[in-house]
Amino acid sequence: MPLQYGFVFDPSKCIQCHSCEMACKSWRDVELGIHWRQVKNIWENHYPEVTCVSVSVACMHCVEPECIKACPEEAIQKLPGNGIVIVDKEKCIGCRTCLDACPFGVPQFGEDEKMQKCDMCIQEIEYQNELPPCVRACPTQALLFEETEEERKKVMEQSVQALLSR
């Protein structure tokens, strides 16, 4: 079975420092108002037993991407070989159907009104043997990057989805 690139997030190590988010914005010159990666705090229980959990979420580059199924223009594709999900801005008509379909709320729409999101820094990885800057930035290794099997990647998708729906 072919391997795919994937983000692995460990909420027990995340300190909500937003470094991954800022590394993404600054290394990729992401326009103002747009977030390819976001760190969120989720409260659990109530005072005085209240506690919290963190999530850092970007495009999960899902094994079976809902956005691809939903897109009426076939503007989104999953690259063979590495599983990275990318958007063809020429084809995108900005209908936002993908946003409704995405279980992680990932698709973003900026000034050009086309869908944009994390492309896993494919250039850095493929051509420069680098880690995505978000992963490189994490002070506690809460965010990792790996080449993994589909089954494990699906488990990661489910765990981030579970965090977001708490």
């Binding site: 420092c17 937003h18 470094s19 988010e21 800022m22 590394a23 914005k25 490189r136 930035a137 002070p139």
Partner: peptide
């Protein structure tokens, strides 16, 4: 971040990036 630095070991905070 600079990996060789014994202070941050290559990590950087949000402020550092901007």
């Amino acid at each position: 971040g600079m990996k060789e630095s014994p202070i941050n070991h290559g990590a950087l905070c949000a402020k550092g990036f901007v």
